[in-house]
Every structure is written in C-alpha cells, then in structure tokens.
C-alpha cells in the first residue's frame, strides 16, 4: 500500500535555499543606502523621482503581465530593481512624467518585449535610460546642485512639469539656489573646460551628477556586500574598473596634460555604479568564466574610449549596453572546457 501523502520527485531532493526573490531582495537592500544618500543630497525632487520611476516600472510590469495573460511577476523583485537603478541614473530634477516614460520603456521595451525576466537581452534600466537620453536630450542634461539649502522644503521647478510639456529652464533657479553652481558634470567640466574636480568633492558628493553617481565609496561598499554574499559576480566590476583605470593610466602617460588621472576616471560619472550594479545584471551578462572577464574588460575600455574620443561626456551606459549586445557572441566563443575534453581551445 502506498501512502497517498508520499511525494514522488526525482533527484536531487534537496535544494539550496536561495531563490530568485531572495537574490533580488538583497540587491534592492544594497541599493537602498545609495538611494537614501541621493535623497539626502537632492531632497524632495530626488525622492519623488525615485518613487515615480519605481511605480512606473511596477505598473508597466503588471500591465504587460495582464496583456500577456500570465500571472503577476511583481514578486520576483526585478522590476523594483530596474526602477531603482533607473531612477539613480537620472538627473535628480528630471521631470516626473519623463521619469515615468523612462520606467515604462525600461520594462516594456527592455524586458516584456522579449518575454520578461530572464529573456531580456539588454539591461532594462539602461534601455530606459538610453531611450530618454535620446528622446529628451536637453532635459537629461539639466543638472541641479547637490545640498541646496531648500531641498527638503521645495521641489525643483522642473520636477512637476506637466506631462508632455517642456520643462522650464532652471539655470537661473539653480544659480540662485547654490552659489557658484556651473550646471556641468565633472566629466563635462574636464572635457570642455579642462577643469578637474577634486577627489574630496567626489567623496562628499558635492558634485553635479545623476542621483546615484555621486557616492562612489557608498556604492563600492554596497556592491562589496553583494559580492561577499555572492549575489553578484565580483569578476565583472573588477574587470570593468581595472581595465578602465588601466586605460586612463596609459592615456595619462601618453599625454598628462590632456588626460586625467585614473582616480578621476574611476570616481567621475557612473562608472562605479555601472560596474557594480548594471554590468553585473545576471540576465544580460555572459555566463562563461572567461567570457565574464572579456565582457568586463570590453566595457571598461569602451567606456574610456567614448569619454575620450566620443561626443558624449559619459560612456558607461552605452558601453554596458554594447557589452550586453555582445554577450551572446562572447558566450558562444568562450565555451568552458568540458571535463575530460582536450585542453586546447577548440570550437566545438
């Protein structure tokens, strides 16, 4: 007689207790300090933007579930991460309606189109960012000063721009809010004015940049936490940062007047958050051990190439997206050696 309660499963019968949800919730957890720091720097506008973008991502995810006729996938937490990361890459006073557009595009164009989590080929947050960068090039390069005195009592005028309307020009407002505000990011100031921002300013966050770009140390710490718990592949940030620093160093050796030092290259722009949280996106990075290194080095070098030779001041986003697009090719060209197979690299 067989007990009706007995379960019949095939081996293995035990599983490591580490599901997708837990990984994702840890990533969210690791991003929260960075978001909190951004709010501390930029005040109400940054907070409103973060909330708007996350809400937009979640709503879009739910809508796409509904359209596709599948169960809700909100609980896997990936949409929350996308929203959070995306918000951190936007200028803090980005109009909320544009933030909502970015969130929508991130999920719809970056993920749902391909079948949802696991099937997207490009990092959704960066797809959203790249879309609004191309759609609203003026708004996405309008920066506001950090630590404005009134940041917790008033919104930046652009934040509540009416949907589909052009945000007002805030250069006068920004100059009034903080003395000596130039409205250019450290990278732009280096590129167009040959002015280097001091490392001290980077560490204190007193620079003009996206909400989540200004706290390299904090981002490193949060990333280290994830890497230590093995929720992200440490090899990618190491490869990206090391290759970027090496590239910067070589260029500086060639022309010390024109090219900044490696430390500036690492601290400025979104290199650290990109390397830690976006290049490491599991779905869109290669899986093979050698491929992961190649991918990281490619992103690091390409970032510096765009910064040094491109028309844009920052290249991390495009470098990572390009790396994502290359990932299938990288995976294919670097198959791991199968046990008991010849050691020489061979196309199998």
């Amino acid at each position: 007689m067989s007990s009706p309660l007995t379960e019949l499963r095939t081996a293995p019968h035990v599983k490591r207790n580490l599901g997708v949800e837990r990984i994702m919730s840890h990533v969210v957890l690791a991003l929260l300090p960075i978001a909190a720091f951004a709010v501390w720097q930029y005040g109400l506008s940054a907070l409103a933007l973060i909330i708007t973008v996350i809400a937009s991502c979640l709503l879009t995810e739910r809508l796409c579930n509904r359209l596709g006729g599948v169960a809700s996938t909100l609980s896997d937490g990936s949409a929350t991460i996308t929203g959070l990361l995306l918000a951190l890459t936007l200028p803090p006073a980005f109009p909320l309606w544009m933030g909502a557009v970015a969130g929508f595009m991130a999920i719809a164009l970056g993920k749902a189109l391909f079948g949802g989590l696991g099937f997207n080929v490009l990092n959704p947050a960066l797809v959203g960012r790249a879309f609004v960068q191309a759609a609203f090039p003026a708004a996405i390069t309008s920066w506001v000063p950090a630590y404005a005195p009134e940041r917790f009592s008033a919104f930046v005028p652009t934040t509540w721009t009416l949907p589909f309307m052009t945000p007002p020009d805030i250069s006068a407002w920004a100059k009034a809010a903080v003395d000596g505000f130039t409205g250019a990011t450290p990278l732009a100031r280096w590129k167009f004015e040959n002015v280097l921002t001091s490392p001290i300013d980077f560490l204190s966050g007193a620079v003009t940049a996206s909400a989540g770009e200004t706290s390299a140390i904090l981002i490193l710490l949060c990333g280290l936490y994830l890497a230590a718990r093995r929720f992200l592949d440490w090899r990618i940030p190491v490869a990206v940062l090391a290759s970027a620093a090496l590239t910067a160093w070589i260029f500086q050796l060639m022309d010390p007047v024109r090219y900044p030092d490696p430390l500036f290259a690492l601290l400025s722009g979104g290199l650290v958050i990109g390397a830690m949280f976006m290049a490491t996106d599991m779905v869109t990075s290669p899986v093979t051990p050698l491929g992961v290194w190649l991918y990281g080095v490619f992103i690091g070098v390409l970032t510096m190439m765009i910064r040094y030779f491109g028309g844009l001041t920052e290249g991390v986003m495009y470098a990572i997206l390009f790396g994502n697009a290359l990932a299938p090719l990288i995976d294919r060209l670097t198959p791991p050696r199968v046990f008991g197979h010849p050691r020489l690299w061979s196309r199998s």
């Binding site: 191309a134 589909f164 309307m165 052009t166």
Partner: peptide, 20 residues
C-alpha cells in the same frame, strides 16, 4: 498640433525611432 510648450520626443526623428 500641441502648441509651443510641447516636448518633442527627439528619438522619434532619430534612427532608433524609425525602427521603433
């Protein structure tokens, strides 16, 4: 169509917009 304050979606005029 929408008056002077309309924010154009520049991407639509660019190559990606055509594909999209």
């Amino acid at each position: 169509l929408f008056g002077p304050d309309f924010q154009p979606w520049v991407v639509m005029m660019l190559p990606p917009g055509g594909f999209f």
